[in-house]
Design a protein around this nucleic acid. Structure first.
Lengths: 339, 339
DNA sequence: ACTTAATTTTGTCGCGCGTAAAATTTTTTG
DNA sequence: CAAAAAATTTTACGCGCGACAAAATTAAGT
C-alpha cells in the first residue's frame, strides 16, 4: 500500500478531482452520492487525512471550539467540561480544553493562544473578579465567545449560568422551615467567580423570609476550598462565630472542609437527635453525596447550562443572531442528611 | 496603528529582513542583541504573532505536547494533568490536554487527532487493559510518547509510574502492625488501569508478612468509584463479606464511597475505642484528608512522576536516548484516622 | 586597517490546501 | 428529447511561512 502525501495524490487514486475531494472533506454531503461513495471507498483503502495546518491556514474559521474553565482540578468544572466536550464532538467540532488554573495571566495567555488557532467559537468560564476584563473583552470582539458559569457584564455573545438568587431562595427556604435560619460562610477573599453573587443572593433570600442574616467571612487564599473550609471554618466553629446552629456555605467544597472539621471537633452534624449543627452547601458537587453525613445542597443544572451554552454558540456560528443575552437556570434542592 | 498581515509586513516595519524575523521567532537568542532589541521594540508597538498554521505546516515537529489522561473528572488525573501542564509551559512548550473519558475508542480518536497535530511529544496515561494496544503501539512509532501511570508492555519510549508492590508493602505492613491484617476490596471489573497490579501487590505483601489474604470483589461498572464503593462496598459490609475488621481498598475513591456507606450503616471507622472497622486506600486522592474519618492511605509521588515523565520526553525531543525504560517511584504512607 | 568569522539580506522555492472562474459533465425540467 | 439548471472538473492563483543558497554586511580579533 502506498503512503499518500497530499490531497492531489489521493484525488488521483480515488478518480476524483482535488477540489471535489476538498469539498468532500469540508462537507461530505455536499458532493453527489456516487462521487462520495468513490471517495469513501478510496478512503478505506488508503486512510488519508488532510493536513490540518494546511487546511486551517486558508480557512477563516476552523472546526475547533475552545473550552476554558477557571480551575480544572475542581470536579465541578471537570464535570461540566466533560459534558461540553462530548457535546462539541457530537456537533462535529473539535473541542480543546484549557484551564486557567486560577491565574488571570494564564487566562489571558490561553485566550491569546486561542485567538491564533482561529476557533469557530469559544466557551469561556472566566475567573471572574480577578479576570483581566479588558483583554477578555478584546478577545470576544474577535472570536465568537459564550460565557458561562460566571458573567462579565456586557462581554461575550451571551451568558449562561445559574440563577443564584433562586438557588439561595430554595436552600434558605428549606433551612428556615426545617430548623434555625442559616448563617452564611464564605471566604474573605474568595477565588471562585460566583462568590459575590451568592452572598447577595443569601442576603436577599433572608430578607425575603424576614430573617436576620449573618455572614461569617473566613481567611484563606486560593482554590483549595476544602482545606480552607476545614482550617478556617473549623476555627470559626471552635470560636462560636456562628449565631445559629445552621451554616450555609458559599459552595459545597467549603462545606466538605467544614464537615471534616466538625468530625474532628466531634460536633455531630445533621437533624437527628444529638446533632449540634446543620451544614449545607451550594453546587451539588460530584462528591457531596458521599460526605459524612451526606451534604444537603442546591444543585446547579449542569446539563442545561452546558446544553444551552453550546446551543447558543452553534446558533451564532451558523450565522444566526443571539436571542437571549442572559440565560439563568434554576437550582434543584437536594435534601440529604447534613441539614 | 496598522494591523499586520504577515511576517513580511512586520519585518519591514521593524527594519529587519523576514528570514531574520523568522529566526528570531524560532529562537530569540539566535539573533544579535541589537537586532533582537529592534524586533522586540516593534513587537511591543504592533503586537504581531506569526500564523501558527503556516509555521507548523513547514516544521516537522511543532512546539506542542499532548497530554492524555484516562478520565479527567477524576481529581487524581486532574491534579497530575495540572502538574504536567505547568511543567510543559515552563519548558517552553504548548501543552494540550485530552481526556479519554474512559472510552477506548475515544482514546484512539484522540491519538489519531494528535498525530495530525505533529506534536513534539506526547505524555500518555492509557486506559490500560481496555486500551486498543495495537493502535497505541502504532501511534508510539510515529510520535515520541512517554507512558505514565499505567504501563503497556513494550509500548512507548518509557514508562513512569508508582511501584505498586512497594505501596502495598507499606500499607499492609502498617495495617498488620496496628491491628488485624487487611482484606482487599476491589471492583470485579475495574475501570482504573492499575487495578490488577494492585491486587497482585496486595497478595505479594500479605504473603511476605505471612498473612492470609482475602479479596472481596464488588459489582459496578464505570468510573463512578465513590458510588460503587458506597453501593456495593456497603452491601458487602452489610452481609459480613469481610474476614477481618480491616479493609484495604484498591484506590481511595472506592474507600471514600465505603466510608460513606459505613456512616450510613452507623459503623464507626477508625482505631479509637468503639470503632468497628478500619478502612484504608491507595493514592492519597486530593480529597482523602477531608473524609470522616480522614483516610489512611499510601500517597503516589505525583511530583516525581510528572517531573520524570517530562524529563524523559524532553531528553528524547532534544535528540538524546532514553536511559531507563521503566521508572517506578515509591509510595509514602499517610497515616490518618481511618486506620 | 585588514583578515576572518558570524550575521543579515536578497531571492527563490515549496508546503498542502482553499478558492474563484471558466469549461465541462451530469441531472433535472418542460 | 432539447434546453435549463446543477454539479463537477480544470485551471490558476494565493495563503504565510520554513528552508536554503549566495551575496552583502557587520562585528571581532590582531
Amino acid at each position: 500500500m502506498v503512503r499518500i502525501r497530499n490531497m492531489e495524490e489521493f484525488a488521483t487514486l480515488s478518480g476524483v478531482s482535488r477540489p471535489t475531494v476538498s469539498k468532500y472533506f469540508h462537507d461530505p454531503s455536499s458532493v453527489r452520492p456516487k462521487i462520495r461513495a468513490q471517495i469513501e471507498r478510496a478512503l478505506e483503502q488508503y486512510d488519508y487525512q488532510p493536513n490540518i495546518f494546511a487546511i486551517n491556514q486558508n480557512r477563516k474559521l476552523t472546526k475547533n471550539i475552545g473550552i476554558v474553565v477557571p480551575y480544572l482540578a475542581d470536579p465541578f468544572f471537570a464535570e461540566i467540561a466533560r459534558n461540553l466536550e462530548q457535546r462539541c464532538l457530537a456537533a462535529g467540532f473539535q473541542p480543546t480544553l484549557y484551564s486557567s488554573h486560577g491565574q488571570p495571566d494564564l487566562e489571558v495567555g490561553i485566550l491569546s493562544n486561542l485567538r491564533r488557532l482561529k476557533p469557530a467559537g469559544v466557551l469561556l468560564a472566566p475567573l471572574g473578579r480577578v479576570s483581566n476584563r479588558a483583554e477578555i473583552e478584546k478577545f470576544c470582539k474577535d472570536v465568537p465567545t459564550v460565557l458561562f458559569d460566571s458573567a462579565l457584564d456586557d462581554v461575550g455573545l451571551a451568558f449562561i449560568g445559574s440563577d443564584n438568587p433562586n438557588l439561595a431562595l430554595q436552600i434558605v427556604d428549606y433551612l428556615c422551615r426545617s430548623g434555625e435560619p442559616p448563617c452564611f460562610m464564605e471566604m474573605k477573599t474568595p477565588a471562585n467567580p460566583n462568590a459575590n453573587k451568592r452572598r447577595e443572593a443569601y442576603l436577599q433570600a433572608m430578607a425575603h423570609f424576614g430573617q436576620t442574616p449573618q455572614i461569617v467571612k473566613i481567611e484563606g487564599i486560593g482554590w483549595a476550598f476544602e482545606e480552607i473550609g476545614y482550617t478556617y471554618g473549623g476555627a470559626a466553629l471552635a470560636s462560636n462565630a456562628f449565631a445559629t446552629n445552621t451554616i450555609l456555605c458559599s459552595n459545597d467544597r467549603l462545606a466538605i472542609g467544614l464537615l471534616s472539621a466538625c468530625y474532628e471537633q466531634q460536633i455531630r452534624v445533621g437533624m437527628t437527635p444529638g446533632c449540634a449543627i446543620r451544614v449545607a452547601g451550594q453546587d451539588d458537587h460530584p462528591f457531596s453525596r458521599f460526605t459524612c453525613p451526606p451534604l444537603t445542597t442546591v444543585a446547579q443544572d449542569y446539563e442545561s447550562i452546558s446544553a444551552k451554552s453550546l446551543e447558543i454558540l452553534m446558533q451564532v456560528i451558523d450565522g444566526g443572531a443571539v436571542d437571549a443575552a442572559k440565560t439563568l437556570f434554576e437550582g434543584r434542592l437536594v435534601m440529604r442528611q447534613s441539614a
